[in-house]
């Protein structure tokens, strides 16, 4: 069975993106184990000269390395990814490269109608940066709009068409992980490119 990390894209105590990941975690428990990962409390990334990342980041990086894939669920703040998620990704690509060639599925929930569409588009660009270079599942948006009304008290998604869509995407993601694992030819050079990427030698 596959093992995934469910990365909660916000440091907020109240989050429908966390709720969405919790739903995915239980709903698909027969297909994969999913560990939820929080990003709260990391220091603000400031490109330290010594390139030492905080211990909690190392723990996160290690878990991501071990996992078969990562599901990131992002809210949208000001048309973009929350600073706290950008911050986590800044740390998780600074001298350590757990995301290189890691299969990633993006989901998002928002209180309004758009379901974090712009944040998801940004996140795809971010994950494509040289030091992240994740393998993002293409053509697979999952936008959960009006997320405050989307769950019942047992944390079940109310809209059956949304559940159906998510089921399809999740099955695709498992296939996508297998596929990516066969696309190993570029992995060595991707890893090398990330490691050689230097702010100072450009």
């Amino acid at each position: 069975m596959k093992h995934f990390i469910g990365l909660v894209g916000t440091n907020s105590d109240q989050s429908t993106n966390r709720q969405l990941l919790q739903f995915i975690q239980t709903y698909f428990k027969d297909q994969a184990t999913i560990e939820l990962m929080e990003i709260k409390g990391l220091p603000v990334f400031n490109k330290p000269k010594d390139r030492i990342v905080p211990d909690e980041v190392k723990v996160m990086a290690n878990k991501i390395e071990q996992a078969d894939g990562v599901i990131i669920s992002t809210p949208e703040y000001d048309h973009a990814v929350p600073a706290s998620l950008m911050n986590a990704l800044n740390w998780l690509s600074y001298g350590i490269y757990p995301f290189v060639d890691k299969p990633v599925m993006i989901t998002g929930a928002s209180y309004g109608t758009l379901g974090s569409s712009r944040a998801q588009a940004h996140l795809r660009q971010i994950l494509d940066a040289p030091e992240l270079k994740a393998r993002i599942m293409p053509s697979s948006e999952f936008l959960l709009a009006h997320s405050l009304q989307a769950f019942n008290e047992d944390n079940q998604l109310l809209d059956s068409s949304q559940v159906e869509k998510l089921t399809g995407l999740f099955a695709d993601f498992i296939t996508f992980v297998d596929l990516i694992n066969q696309l190993i030819h570029a992995h060595g050079s991707n890893k090398k490119a990330a490691e050689n990427f230097s702010w100072d030698n450009l």
Binding site: V44, M86, H122, Q125, I126
Partner: peptide
């Protein structure tokens, strides 16, 4: 940073 503005 990472194709976008810094988190800070």
């Amino acid at each position: 940073h990472n194709h976008t503005i810094p988190a800070g």
